[in-house]
C-alpha cells in the first residue's frame, strides 16, 4: 500500500504549461502516474500534449477529472494562492514543488489549511514517490526500487543519495517523502514518521534532517513514545556556521537553536540509529534490518 500515493492517485499539475511544470508532468506521466489534468488560468479548454485536459481553475479540474492530488509548479509570487485554491477545491494531497515562496504568504496559506481535509507536502520540496506506482515531483524515477523502506527528508538531492544507496544494496522503498527545506512546511517529520509507522508495508525508515528549527527534535520525542519501527537518522549541516543560511530558507542556526548536535542528541535519546557519515545511510539500514530479523 505505501503511504499517500499509489495506483489510485489521480494527479493534476497546477502550472502545467510552464517549462518546469510541463517537463515534470511529462516525466511523472512517463513513470506511470495517472495524470488526469492540468491547470493554467486562461488556458482552460486546451490540451497538454494533446491528451491531458487543461482547466482554468482547480475546482473545474476536480469536477471533470475527479483529481485527488495536485503538483504545484506555480511561480513563487502566486504559489501560496495556488495551495489555497487546491485545498478549497477538495484536493486531498497537495504537493508544492515551488521554491522561494515569501514566508508571510505561507503563514496565511498554512492557517487556511487548518481544519481542511487535506495534506500539504512542501513547499520547496522534491515531492513524493511510491516506487513502481506513482511519482509526484521532480525526483529521478529510475534510481528507485519498490520495497519496504520509508524515506523522509528536508532535502532533494540528499534524498536521492539515500535512495541510491538503498537501491544499490537491493533495499527497495515503500514511499519517499521530500518534506521541503522552508521554515513553514505542510507535512513535517513527525507526521511522516506517523504515516510510516501506521503503514503495514513499511519496515523501517530513513529520516534525514538538517540544521534549523526544531522539527527533528519534536519528531524524535514523538518517535520515542510511539514508533515501533527502526529509524536510521542523519542530520545535514554539522559543519555549518551559525547565523548563515545554507541554501534552504529553513537551514539556519539562529538564536542558539537548530544546531545539528541538538538534533543528534534528540535522535540518540529516541533510539534512532545515527549515521554521522551520509555515505553510511544504506549500509546501516541493511545492518539494522538484519539485526531486527527483517532481512
Amino acid at each position: 500500500m505505501a503511504v499517500l500515493v499509489d495506483h489510485n492517485t489521480r494527479l493534476i499539475t497546477q502550472g502545467i504549461t510552464g517549462s518546469s511544470g510541463a517537463f515534470h508532468s511529462r516525466m511523472c506521466k512517463a513513470y506511470g502516474t495517472n495524470l488526469v489534468g492540468g491547470v493554467t488560468p486562461g488556458k482552460g479548454g486546451t490540451w497538454f500534449e494533446g491528451e491531458v485536459p487543461i482547466f482554468n481553475t482547480v475546482a473545474e479540474a476536480v469536477k471533470y477529472t475527479a483529481a485527488n492530488a495536485t503538483m504545484i509548479f506555480v511561480p513563487p509570487p502566486y504559489a501560496a494562492d495556488a495551495i489555497m485554491e487546491a485545498a478549497d477545491a477538495g484536493i486531498k494531497l497537495i504537493v508544492c514543488i515551488t521554491e522561494g515562496i515569501p514566508a508571510n504568504d505561507m503563514v496565511k496559506a498554512w492557517r487556511y489549511l487548518q481544519g481542511k481535509d487535506c495534506r500539504l507536502i512542501g513547499p520547496n520540496c522534491p515531492g513524493i514517490i511510491t516506487p513502481g506506482a506513482a511519482k509526484i515531483g521532480i525526483m529521478p524515477g529510475h534510481i528507485h526500487l519498490p520495497g519496504r523502506i520509508g524515506v523522509v527528508s528536508r532535502s532533494g538531492t540528499l534524498t536521492y543519495e539515500a535512495v541510491g544507496q538503498l537501491t544499490a544494496l537491493g533495499l527497495g522503498q515503500s514511499t519517499c517523502i521530500g518534506i521541503g527545506g522552508d521554515p513553514i512546511i505542510g507535512t513535517n517529520h513527525t507526521e511522516a514518521l506517523r504515516l510510516f509507522n501506521d503503514d503495514p508495508d513499511t519496515d523501517a525508515v530513513i529520516m534525514i534532517g538538517e540544521i534549523g528549527g526544531s522539527a527533528e527534535e519534536a519528531a524524535c520525542a514523538w518517535a520515542k513514545a510511539n514508533m515501533s519501527k527502526p529509524i536510521i537518522g542523519f542530520i545535514a549541516g554539522a559543519t555549518a556556521p551559525p547565523g548563515r543560511r545554507m541554501g534552504h530558507a529553513g537551514a539556519i542556526i539562529s538564536g542558539g537553536q537548530g544546531r545539528a548536535e541538538d538534533k543528534y542528541a534528540a535522535m540518540s535519546d529516541a533510539g534512532v540509529h545515527i549515521v554521522r557519515s551520509p555515505a553510511e545511510m544504506g549500509r546501516r539500514m541493511k545492518e539494522v534490518l538484519i539485526e531486527a530479523g527483517l532481512l
Binding site: 532535502s155 540528499l158 543519495e161 527545506g181 538538517e210 540544521i211 542523519f234 545535514a236 545554507m246 555515505a279
Partner: peptide
C-alpha cells in the same frame, strides 16, 4: 542541492 551540499561538508570533516 542544499542538503547534499551540507552533507558533503560534513563527510569531508
Amino acid at each position: 542541492g542544499a542538503g547534499l551540499a551540507m552533507a558533503t561538508m560534513d563527510i569531508i570533516k
